[in-house]
Amino acid sequence: MLALAATSLLAPAAPAFAKERRYYTSDNGVRYWKGDDGRYYCKRSNGTTGLIVGAAAGALLGRAVDTRGERATGTILGAAAGALVGRQVQRGTVKCR
């Protein structure tokens, strides 16, 4: 009975282990893989590091610009704008051709 229960827990995870991608690296350092349709796809960053660094820099810049009151508004708006810009900058650095 215990073996049956353990097997039933692994069954939903089986499709995740079905196929593993093989990554290649080009001369300029871009990682890519070949899809089932024969086309090549590149591995792109999701922009998390850029988001965090941009949010921190934007918060500091927003706090410096907003000199009235508690400066929370400038900090929050600067962090939001910096996060969006930082994410787009990091995601836009990889060019796949």
Rank of each mutant, 00 (worst) to 15 (best):
T93V: 11
G38F: 03
R63K: 12
V65W: 08
S26D: 15
K95Q: 15
A80V: 14
A79W: 01
T49Y: 07
A11K: 10
T49A: 12
K95S: 07
R97Q: 05
T73D: 15
A14M: 15
Q90M: 08
Y23D: 04
G78F: 04
A72H: 09
G54Y: 02
L2H: 15
A59K: 00
A18S: 10
F17E: 15
Y40Q: 09
V85K: 02
L4V: 07
A72V: 06
A79P: 01
A57V: 15
Y40A: 10
A56D: 03
L9M: 09
V85Y: 01
T49W: 06
C42G: 01
A81C: 12
T67D: 08
A79Q: 05
L60T: 04
A80I: 03
P15Y: 13
R87F: 04
A13E: 11
E70H: 13
L77G: 02
L77Q: 05
V53E: 05
L60A: 04
I52G: 03
D36K: 11
V94Y: 13
G86I: 00
T25R: 14
Q90D: 14
T75L: 11
R71K: 14
L2V: 13
A14V: 15
R68A: 12
L60S: 04
L51Q: 00
A56K: 02
G74Y: 02
G62R: 02
G62M: 05
E70L: 13
K34A: 10
A3D: 13
R39Y: 09
A81V: 02
P12Y: 07
L77F: 06
V30H: 04
G50M: 01
A5L: 15
A55L: 00
A6K: 14
E20A: 10
A14I: 15
S8L: 11
T7D: 05
G86P: 02
A6N: 08
T67G: 03
F17V: 11
Q90V: 02
G54C: 05
G35V: 05
R97T: 14
G86T: 00
G54K: 00
I52Y: 00
G29I: 07
K19I: 15
A59M: 11
A56V: 06
R31D: 09
W33I: 11
D36W: 12
R68F: 04
V65I: 12
A79T: 01
T93G: 10
E70I: 06
D36T: 15
G69T: 11
N46L: 06
T75Q: 08
S26M: 06
N28V: 07
G47M: 02
Y23Q: 05
L2R: 14
G92Q: 04
